[in-house]
Design a protein around this nucleic acid. Sequence first.
DNA 1: CGGATTTTGGACTTGCAGGTCCATTTTTGC
DNA 2: GCAAAAATGGACCTGCAAGTCCAAAATCCG
Lengths: 201, 201
Amino acid sequence: MTRALTRKGEATRARIVAGAAAEIRERGVDEVRLEDVMAHTGTSKGQLFHYFPDGKEGLLLAVAQHEADQVLLDQEPMLSNLTSWPAWLAWRERLIERYRAQGVKCPLNGLLGQTGRRAPGAQAIVTGLMWRWQNAIVDGIRHMQSTGDIASEVDADRSAAALLAGIQGGVLLLLSTGKTDHLEAVLDLTIDSLRAGARTA
Amino acid sequence: MTRALTRKGEATRARIVAGAAAEIRERGVDEVRLEDVMAHTGTSKGQLFHYFPDGKEGLLLAVAQHEADQVLLDQEPMLSNLTSWPAWLAWRERLIERYRAQGVKCPLNGLLGQTGRRAPGAQAIVTGLMWRWQNAIVDGIRHMQSTGDIASEVDADRSAAALLAGIQGGVLLLLSTGKTDHLEAVLDLTIDSLRAGARTA
DNA sequence: CGGATTTTGGACTTGCAGGTCCATTTTTGC
DNA sequence: GCAAAAATGGACCTGCAAGTCCAAAATCCG
């Protein structure tokens, strides 16, 4: 069932996904027609349905996966190396920088809303992203606990959950306000709080 | 310019907004057709465009405003009386209870995504909601500072921003996971953090 | 009451975006 | 080089949902 894809085919498919993703990031999910994707990627309708037999649904799913992966990739290598306080701050910087650059254009917010309900797959993609993200944070906290930089009494899972939620909310508010104030406040206060745990221990 | 609205007209308009809001909450913005609203509210197409000359756009805007107001109303009277630690906990309980009941159905998430980009008004509604919400939290923190329950060194605005972001993210994650874990973690840890500030002071 | 205005119902129009189809060209593997 | 398979282009179809229009009923107000 794994359809045979020529090298050329593979390239075209990737070009479609990347182009659609860019278009969606720029103008929002429901403003992007299949024809826009065609124009923007230099492809024909035949190609779209050749590579995505399920039509827009399938394409959107592929785009969502692409964007989800990108979110984590953009945080590397910091996210996987939360092994010292400077490393945490570097991660903080990267996050803010990334989202400041992204501004009001959120790829996943719309995708979740659009495909979230009808496609069971979209939900899974977002859930998977959050799960991987939170796990990385948990790993970071655990590591800091192993070195004594964070008190062992701290509940790593719970703290990571709160931090992740804060980040998501911070980004959400960035979409409304256009400012990174909330995101910065969350990161600073939460990380400070983790730090304070070392003294309390 | 304020169009003349009979008592009956006023009632019909309200019925349309409330019905549309319910429908949207249940099935999502882009799954709801004007005909669904008509069927669900017992109105005709003529009525819809009579009360909302701008069509779906205007209706969605009215629904968004309706839902935004509801969000804050649902937190009263707790939100306006964050004057003691038990009061804060009561607010916490109300929030979790409310969102647990709401579950995966988020009215504003979709509305923001749908109308957010094209309608400048939708953005304003969400921004206004967040602003009022955050202000209420700031007032709570300030009051607690005036009674010495929170250290005066705490930056009320910054803390409120972080808390609000955490709540938003917690709700967002509730939409993905179906669990209130993140929301609870954020509330508990953030409020604890504010509390700790009293001792540090 | 009675004329003006608002409210209501529903048939009709319209545009458009997703999806289908097939003919043509290119690539693949032997 | 040549058949089979994959890639491409684009004309065409179709359904649907938003929006238009007007005529009939209800309501308001002097």
